Computed example of a mutant assay.
Amino acid sequence: MRLLPWTGADGKPCYLSTDDPDSLLSRLADDVEAAQLASAEAVLAGARAVMHDPKAGEHAVRCALARAVESLGDVLRIAVGRGDGTR
């Protein structure tokens, strides 16, 4: 069973049961994970820039933190799905 990098409409985890890593849904999940990881890298760079800017206001810090929290959730879900983390 593979934990997919998205949830259902009810917020519950979605799983894929297949032995074919080249199935359409497996490839879609791989693409979504790659996009989430790339986004997390960009969010990290942006958050670092905000944190190193002494002129950054509360709004900038809150926005950077909100995006970082979203990205961390995505990255943790990917790690758990790949068996590299626990929940």
Rank of each mutant, 00 (worst) to 15 (best):
M1C: 00
R2Y: 09
R2M: 08
L3M: 08
L4M: 15
P5C: 03
P5K: 05
W6S: 05
W6H: 07
W6Q: 04
T7V: 13
G8P: 00
G8M: 03
A9I: 12
A9Y: 09
A9D: 15
D10A: 06
G11Y: 06
G11E: 00
G11P: 07
C14I: 07
C14S: 12
C14P: 04
Y15N: 01
Y15H: 10
Y15G: 01
Y15V: 10
L16W: 09
L16Y: 10
S17G: 05
S17C: 08
S17F: 13
T18P: 01
T18M: 11
T18G: 00
T18R: 09
T18N: 06
T18V: 10
D19F: 10
D20M: 08
P21E: 14
P21R: 06
P21M: 09
P21A: 13
D22M: 14
D22K: 14
L24A: 15
L25I: 12
L25M: 15
S26A: 15
S26T: 09
L28R: 12
A29H: 03
A29Y: 03
D30A: 15
D30Y: 09
D30V: 07
V32P: 03
V32Y: 06
A35R: 13
A35G: 08
A35Y: 06
Q36T: 05
Q36S: 02
Q36K: 10
L37N: 04
S39V: 02
S39C: 08
A40C: 08
A40M: 02
A40R: 01
A40V: 05
A40D: 03
E41A: 07
E41T: 02
A42Q: 12
V43Y: 00
V43A: 07
L44I: 06
G46W: 05
G46K: 00
G46F: 02
G46E: 01
A47Y: 03
A47K: 03
A47I: 01
R48Q: 15
A49C: 05
A49Y: 01
V50T: 12
V50D: 07
H52V: 11
D53E: 11
D53C: 07
D53A: 10
D53L: 09
D53I: 12
D53M: 10
K55E: 15
K55Y: 15
A56W: 08
G57R: 02
E58H: 07
E58M: 04
H59Q: 12
H59N: 09
H59F: 07
A60W: 01
A60H: 05
A60P: 03
A60G: 00
V61Y: 04
V61N: 02
R62Y: 11
C63G: 05
C63T: 13
A64C: 10
A64F: 08
L65T: 09
L65P: 01
A66H: 13
A66W: 11
A66L: 11
R67E: 13
R67M: 12
A68L: 15
V69P: 05
V69I: 13
V69T: 13
E70V: 06
E70N: 03
E70A: 01
E70H: 04
S71C: 13
G73Y: 04
G73W: 03
D74Q: 12
D74R: 09
D74H: 12
D74W: 08
V75A: 11
V75P: 04
L76D: 03
R77P: 06
R77W: 02
R77Q: 14
I78G: 04
A79I: 02
A79G: 04
V80W: 07
G81C: 07
R82D: 12
D84S: 09
G85S: 15
T86E: 15
T86S: 15
